[in-house]
Simulated scan of single mutants.
Amino acid sequence: MVNHDLELVPGLMTTRAEVGAAFGGGLFGGIEPAPGSDMVLVYSDPKVGELHGYTFDGQAEDDDRGPLYLYTGEGKAGDQEFTGGNKALRHHATDGRTLQLFVADGNVIDPITGKKKKGKRQRYIGQMILDPEQPYDRRRAPGTDGVERSVIVFHLRPDPQATFPPKFTPADAIPPATAHAVVDLEVETEPETDTEAEDAVSTGPSSSQVETEEHSTDETVANIPGGQRTVQRREGQLTKAYKAHLVAAGHTVKRYQISIEGVASTLKTDLYDVTDNVLYEAKGTVRRDDVRMAIGQLFDYRRHIDAAEGLRLAVLLPGDPGKDLRALLDTLGIALVIRTSEGFGGFPLA
């Protein structure tokens, strides 16, 4: 039976037993809908994530929408889904429940013996909500079985309706980037979407054309419905085909997922040829803008990759970008692989 005699004030040190006695909820789950109240209790313990090889949980850098806390969903092995606690957190607002965030903060100490007791202290951060614009993203991380899988990383923001603002400490910040480990490649030919129909958001179709600036060019820009998805599909199919080509040649192919200190999102590379130590960036077209973007991405990734010494860079394209862009890549020391009618041509196949 709950008693509701625990006053939740940001910064409060408590235990799960005390919270459970006051509001309900279990003692072990990371996300606990409290049956004795209109709350969903979220218990974050970044050190547990470190044990499994990822460090997503914690306070990211403030952005134009204010403080942001990242929290990895429930599910120790296999792809995480919107069931159980994950579903309760995802739909806390529509279910009429507030979201209360706690962070593990040291061990519970017996005041008499001074010895550690079972369980951890819980520091109350405050009342939160899911980010209305980006409530979550999906990332790659190992499960307890060591197998890479897709995990849900929720984006928590301070609840504007809360009585008190959240209280963070420097210890809550996301640690420096350590997730340079190569992860298995999963080629996505379509953008990832939530499987629950009510979560799908659409702004409706749109189509517009704008004139180019007066630069003596015959190029125009067309924002066609589904156009970007078409490019992504081409890129995904190209990446998938080239991966199969490398694997058939006996190469080991992976990808990198890079976490940046204090930044909410992760960087995910395209192909990494472990056998030849080559990092590839693929593009679905041979347009100059895409080639230039690929160059920037490769240089950005290289700064954060442990294997950067001796790492070779390459751009993967569906066709020949032309003499000038080939020269640009050559000047920068970036190799070029293109798809041909016979398969693929260029570095390192030539």
Score class of each variant (00 low, 15 high):
His52Lys: 06
His52Glu: 06
Gly53Tyr: 02
Tyr54Trp: 10
Thr55Trp: 01
Phe56Tyr: 13
Phe56Arg: 03
Gly58Val: 04
Gln59His: 07
Gln59Ser: 04
Ala60Arg: 08
Glu61Leu: 11
Asp63Ile: 00
Asp63Ala: 03
Asp63Leu: 00
Asp63Pro: 03
Arg65Cys: 05
Arg65Tyr: 06
Gly66Cys: 03
Pro67Asn: 06
Pro67Phe: 04
Leu68Cys: 10
Tyr69Phe: 15
Tyr69His: 11
Leu70Ile: 08
Tyr71Asp: 01
Tyr71Lys: 09
Tyr71Pro: 01
Tyr71Arg: 10
Thr72Ser: 14
Glu74Gly: 11
Glu74Met: 13
Glu74Leu: 05
Glu74Phe: 02
Gly75Tyr: 08
Gly75Pro: 01
Lys76Val: 13
Lys76Tyr: 10
Gly78Val: 10
Gly78Thr: 12
Gly78Lys: 04
Gly78His: 08
Gln80Phe: 12
Glu81His: 15
Glu81Ser: 14
Phe82Asp: 06
Phe82Arg: 08
Thr83Asp: 11
Gly84Ile: 00
Gly84Leu: 11
Asn86Tyr: 01
Asn86Gln: 12
Lys87Met: 07
Lys87Ala: 13
Ala88Lys: 02
Leu89Val: 10
Arg90Tyr: 10
Arg90His: 02
Arg90Gly: 05
His91Asn: 08
His91Trp: 14
His92Glu: 12
Ala93His: 09
Thr94Tyr: 04
Thr94Lys: 15
Thr94Asn: 10
Asp95Lys: 15
Asp95Cys: 13
Gly96Glu: 09
Arg97Glu: 05
Arg97Ala: 04
Arg97Val: 01
Thr98Glu: 15
Leu99Asn: 05
Gln100Asn: 12
Gln100Trp: 15
Leu101Trp: 05
Phe102Asn: 07
Phe102Gln: 06
Ala104Trp: 00
Ala104Pro: 01
Gly106Arg: 00
Asn107Glu: 09
Val108Asn: 12
Val108Gly: 06
Ile109Phe: 03
Ile109Asp: 02
Asp110Val: 02
Thr113Arg: 01
Lys115His: 07
Lys116Met: 14
Lys116Gln: 14
Lys117Ile: 02
Lys117Ala: 14
Lys118Asp: 09
Lys118Gly: 07
Lys120Ile: 05
Arg121Trp: 01
Gln122Leu: 10
Gln122Glu: 07
Arg123Trp: 05
Arg123Gly: 04
Gly126Gln: 00
Gly126Asn: 04
Gly126Arg: 07
Met128His: 03
Ile129Pro: 00
Ile129Asn: 04
Ile129Tyr: 03
Asp131Ile: 11
Asp131Met: 02
Pro132Met: 03
Glu133Cys: 05
Pro135Gly: 02
Tyr136Thr: 02
Arg138Lys: 13
Arg138Asp: 14
Arg138Pro: 03
Arg139His: 15
Arg140Gly: 11
Gly143Leu: 08
Gly143Asn: 10
Thr144Phe: 09
Thr144Leu: 11
Asp145Asn: 15
Gly146Gln: 06
Glu148Lys: 10
Arg149Asp: 11
Ser150Cys: 11
Val151Arg: 01
Val151Ala: 07
